[in-house]
Design a protein around this nucleic acid. Structure first.
Length: 888
RNA sequence: GGGCGGGUAGCUCAGCGGGAGAGCACCGGCCUUACAAGCCGGGGGUCACAGGUUCAAAUCCUGUUCCGCCUACCA
């Protein structure tokens, strides 16, 4: 054996950066621009430029990288399109916070200066997450990196907006929208997070005009009464029916409120009478449209009461609530207060409570777009994996409401609409207009609003590839093969890409959508800063290595189930990396000059362990490939773990030591060849999951090849499938394990070599063990291995421990060492187990219905089991009897 | 209110019609020259509960219950 080629313990820090730089410098991630016929493409869910890699990113991108590397190694022309999202509100908030630290607001700077400031912030700190993705090993085609505010993508955004407008799918109007008083902008329905909060239901008495009667309304938001313009009751409600058409008088304000009947009012809820505030409640807004009611806005964009709010003018919404309740109480209008759980809407960016407010906004009419997107999934154009998400997708697509796309912020794509200040004409155009097409004046004012960030994200699969130009890239890679994303943005992003892709490319944006779960903490809680349960992926990579971290994520990526991640688990897979490292460390010195691959003719003449490991390798290859093709990342990872550790390391390497360290040169060469082939294949199989360590080891196996990144990925090889070898090895392994087990249960030290007597049931068993005598001797740590003549009548040594493997018996003579009582209880325990199983089998076999109705294979299997178990039972009983006699 | 997912070994989870599995943790024995981040052996589960279908149910159906998530204009 030569010198140590590798350090004893695997140290990821020594190799990860080196390999990543090598890959990048050699352009190994680059896609060929022109179509080859076998393309594989993924567009990255673009992280926010403000972002820093969190566990969700790490998981999401690990899965993408596995797919990309897998298909790249399989010879596909592979494109992983990368980039970042400008994240309107989020980014603006970050920069505004910076300004605030300097005592400034964005208004102090003005729009232009502020945007310049955001850009310079982006240039300086926007690349952080990209470097973190590189740290994770992501093999994106970085030369094509895009940003949603790039010139090209902005052109696409404008083109889409104008076309939608031309088609009448974009419109502008005064509607009630979700307003964030903190961010000062409208939000789409999706951008509002709902939560339950403790509140009250206040019952307030509204007197009926010219009458002694009064109506009691129930509300969770008494301050909105300032904007009431009606009271609604259910037209079927006997209590109030007679009041419909009459008027109530709004307490404190004195406004006359018409009493209307409408079926939306639930007779059972509260008092059955609903105060109607069209400007500050969605239901009420819609009521006002049906009944032609006045709208009185009482709150401004800061969430403060405005001049319509009588003496409450200028008060904050919550202060006003208190004040109003107090005054109502003092004046005798407050009937009662009930504790009540209210649903609160919060801004998804700043968490402030959202106000429904009426304002002028731009909307996309989504119904026609949604219908196409719905059908595309229904017709199988796009497949959602796991399949159950399709239902959620349909649900949303059918109940979808128009999409509010205008935002009253500065950072984003400014809406390409102008209003003529002279004649009021609204112009929507691709190029900035110089004059009003109607009155020819040049007094035009551009819309100040920008578009919802998700508007540009919706175009990502084609805008990144150069659309609206018909580029080679689009021809080659659109539709993309697969989108990998979390379900949290199924509606925000996936659904909208479907709509836009179908509308503007005439085809779906991706063939498959793989929806993965969320990464939670070890107790199943969502990771969040406020809970303090964040696990930082960068820290994990530093501490345990990127490969161990990636492998953990993939091993836990079972479909449809959230991941509960614990650091301990990552540490566990770090051990796996070390195991791989040491398997290579053992193997490498023998591989010099070993045959590169095992030829088919070689395979036949190989020794049993070689034939066995090749057959097992083939099984692993088949399983890993099929698992990855089905997005069963965890199955693939588990198969690799089991094969590597249990089969390759625990058994094969141990067996290989015999020929490798023994004298026969031809046998050593054959084994070295197989060892090389299996190790090389294993590195390739593992590479998509753990790219760094596998590349390092591969480079030691084959110093002349550039990288295994380019493949090939191992394919199943029929010729290595060898059920006979597997059957034989299983028998040998059982024999070996049975001896080890006896040793351990008898409390004998491993160093103690034991004589072993094997009594085979048949000639071929005897031959098999004879042929592998050295292997069994070594691995069972036998001092002497005797094989009885299967035809002879062998009387076992009196004082010996027994194990039964099928019909074969193993005796370990232990004269003077063994305590018969210990052996008896050991045998009894074993017998009890066997008999319990036997009882189950017998029950089945004595059931006529089973024999008649079960499929023949199942019956055969049970019969075979019955035979095995009976033989085992007999063997154990014989030994027990012998032991009992000896004791007397 | 509607929808979805889940309750399997101490923990985290596979399995989803025919012998209850893995990793970690645990117990016992080992520094056997690749690896103590290791090796060998072992213990541990009426598969949430109740019915049903079936020759056969952790696995399929129905109901109950607990947990989690998504969605919604009961103020």
């Amino acid at each position: 054996m030569g010198e140590d080629l590798l350090p004893k313990a695997y140290d990821p820090t020594l190799i990860e950066n080196r390999w990543y730089n090598f890959w990048e410098e050699n352009k190994l991630f680059a896609a060929a621009e022109n179509k080859t016929g076998s393309e594989y493409s993924i567009v990255i869910p673009p992280p926010n430029v403000t972002g820093s890699l969190h566990m969700g990113h790490a998981f999401n991108n690990t899965l993408q990288d596995i797919l990309i590397r897998f298909y790249r190694m399989n010879g596909y022309n592979t494109l992983w399109m990368a980039g970042t999202d400008h994240a309107g509100i989020a980014t603006q908030n970050v920069v505004e916070k910076q300004l605030a630290a300097e005592g400034l607001t964005r208004q102090d700077l003005g729009r232009e200066k502020f945007i310049e400031r955001v850009w310079s912030w982006k240039e300086q700190s926007g690349g952080v997450i990209i470097n973190q993705l590189k740290r994770l090993g992501c093999s994106c085609d970085w030369d094509r990196e895009r940003f949603t505010m790039d010139e090209g993508l902005s052109k696409a955004v404008r083109e889409v907006f104008v076309r939608l407008h031309e088609q009448g799918l974009v419109y502008r109007g005064d509607y009630i929208v979700n307003w964030c008083p903190r961010c000062h902008t409208a939000l789409s329905d999706l951008e509002v997070e709902h939560e339950d909060a403790t509140g009250n239901l206040w019952h307030i008495r509204y007197p009926v005009e010219n009458s002694d009667e009064s109506l009691v309304v129930a509300t969770t938001r008494p301050e909105t009464m300032l904007g009431d313009t009606a009271v609604a009751v259910n037209p079927e409600d006997e209590r109030y029916k007679h009041l419909i058409g009459k008027y109530a008088i709004l307490p404190l304000v004195g406004r006359r409120l018409i009493i209307i009947g409408d079926p939306v009012v639930d007779k059972e809820f509260g008092t059955g009478a609903l105060k109607v505030t069209p400007s500050h409640d969605l239901t009420d807004f819609e009521l006002s449209l049906r009944h032609n009611l006045d709208k009185v806005t009482v709150m401004d964009y800061h969430g403060r009461i405005n001049e319509q709010g009588i003496h409450f003018n200028g008060m904050d919404r919550y202060a006003c609530r208190e004040a109003i309740v107090k005054e109502l109480d003092e004046k005798g209008y407050l009937v009662s207060i009930q504790p009540y759980t209210v649903g609160l809407g919060r801004c998804y960016r700043c968490k402030d409570v959202v106000e429904p407010l009426i304002s002028k906004q731009w909307f996309v009419k989504v119904a026609p777009l949604a219908e196409k997107a719905h059908n595309a999934v229904k017709n199988g154009k796009t497949r959602i994996v796991p399949e159950h998400w399709t239902k959620t997708y349909y649900e949303w697509m059918t109940n979808i409401r128009d999409w509010c796309i205008s935002r009253q912020i500065w950072w984003g794509h400014r809406i390409p609409a102008w209003t003529c200040q002279d004649c009021g004409e609204v112009i929507v155009a691709r190029q900035d207009p110089m004059e009003c097409p109607k009155c020819k004046c040049s007094n035009l004012a551009q819309e100040t609003d920008v578009l919802d960030t998700w508007f540009s994200s919706a175009l990502w699969p084609f805008s990144t590839m150069g659309w609206p130009d018909q580029t080679e890239l689009l021809k080659a890679f659109y539709p993309t093969t697969c989108l990998v994303t979390g379900f949290d943005i199924l509606f925000f992003w996936v659904a909208r890409m479907m709509m836009m892709g179908l509308e503007f490319m005439g085809d779906v944006p991706f063939r498959d959508v793989y929806i993965h779960a969320l990464v939670r903490d070890e107790h199943g809680k969502k990771m969040s800063k406020s809970l303090g349960n964040i696990i930082d992926p960068l820290l994990m990579m530093d501490k345990y290595g990127t490969d161990a971290f990636r492998f953990t994520l993939s091993a836990m990526a079972a479909q449809g189930r959230d991941i509960r991640l614990s650091e301990q688990r990552i540490d566990g897979y770090r051990h796996f990396m070390n195991k791989i490292w040491n398997a290579a460390r053992f193997s490498l010195p023998y591989l010099d000059g070993a045959p590169n691959r095992v030829s088919q003719t070689d395979a036949v003449s190989l020794a049993l362990p070689e034939r066995w490991i090749l057959s097992r390798l083939n099984a692993a290859v088949t399983e890993v490939r099929s698992a990855l093709e089905d997005y069963r990342f965890n199955d693939a990872a588990q198969a690799l773990y089991q094969f590597t550790w249990r089969e390759f390391c625990d058994w094969y390497i141990e067996e290989a030591k015999i020929p490798l360290t023994g004298g026969d040169e031809a046998a050593a060469r054959a084994t070295a060849g197989v060892l090389r082939h299996v190790l090389d294949s294993l590195m390739r199989l593992l590479h998509p999951f753990i790219p760094f360590i596998t590349e390092e080891i591969s480079s030691k196996i084959s110093p002349d090849s550039q990288s295994i990144m380019n493949g090939p990925y191992p394919s199943p090889e029929e010729t290595t499938v060898d059920p006979e070898a597997e059957r034989c090895m299983n028998l040998l392994m059982d024999v070996i394990t049975s001896v080890r087990s006896i040793r351990a249960e008898m409390n004998l030290p491993p160093a103690k070599k034991l004589p072993v007597l094997v009594v085979p049931a048949a000639r071929e068993e005897a031959d098999l063990i004879q042929a592998n005598r050295e292997l069994v001797t070594l691995m069972a740590r036998a001092s002497d291995l005797q094989i009885a003549d299967p035809d002879g009548n062998m009387e076992p040594p009196k004082m010996s421990a027994t194990a039964v493997v099928g019909e074969l018996k193993v005796f370990v003579p232990l004269e003077g060492i063994i305590d018969p009582d210990v052996e008896i209880s050991r045998l009894e325990k074993e017998l009890a187990k066997v008999e319990k199983e036997l009882a189950q089998v017998q029950k089945k076999l004595s059931n006529e219905n089973f024999l008649a109705k079960a499929n023949p294979e199942a019956v055969e299997k049970q019969q075979a089991r019955h035979g095995d178990l009976t033989a085992k039972q007999e063997g154990l009983n014989a030994s027990l009897e012998r032991m009992r006699l000896l004791r007397q």
